[in-house]
């Protein structure tokens, strides 16, 4: 009996230290990956020029849609912008830009200076829509397929690796 208890105690400590060791080498960056492989939530978001609303129906029309949250005040958004420009030239992919908590004149200047990669452009003035997509800091991008399934989430600026990844998926 005493022997069993001793073995159990040893085992518990080994287990705890083992887990500590594993955790040391893990990437601690947080992403809301729980949304991947789930259906896109319903949304109705006003277009940038106030002319109409975009909903999931606009996503269904395309093979793939990339929803990109951006703002003129966000420095990393400038970093990822060239990648978005490159992505805008690919077929099979529609980019829905959502201008996040921004002032319109500044957003316009941003796009006229750096180019407009967005096929569809909407705005999220108070940020409420971002919550539906699990956005916690911009830029963030979400790749969705025709069946409205979220395939991939990108937290932070899109990198060249992300670009290649997206190209691989949509082809």
């Amino acid at each position: 009996m005493q022997k069993i208890i001793k073995i159990i105690i040893l085992f518990i400590f080994l287990f705890v230290i083992g887990i500590f060791y594993i955790s040391l080498t893990r990437n601690t960056n947080y992403n809301t990956s729980s949304l991947i492989n789930k259906e896109t939530p319903e949304f109705k978001i006003i277009s940038f020029d106030d002319s109409n609303f975009y909903t999931r129906d606009d996503v269904k029309k395309n093979n793939y849609t990339l929803i990109n949250f951006w703002a003129s005040w966000c420095a990393p958004c400038k970093v990822e912008h060239p990648i978005l420009m490159k992505l805008s030239q690919t077929k099979n992919l529609v980019i829905l830009g959502i201008n996040f908590k921004d002032k319109e004149p500044q957003a316009k200047i941003f796009l006229s200076e750096l180019g407009n990669p967005y096929d569809l452009l909407a705005k999220d003035k108070n940020g409420k829509h971002s919550v539906k997509f699990g956005i916690y800091g911009i830029p963030e991008s979400i790749l969705i397929n025709k069946e409205l399934m979220i395939i991939q989430k990108f937290v932070g600026p899109l990198s060249v690796d992300d670009y290649n990844n997206i190209i691989k998926i949509i082809e």
Binding site: F20, S23, L24, R26, N27, T28, N29, Y30
Partner: peptide, 8 residues
């Protein structure tokens, strides 16, 4: 640093 979460 294993308890630091969001920002590495």
């Amino acid at each position: 640093g294993i308890l630091n979460s969001v920002h590495t």
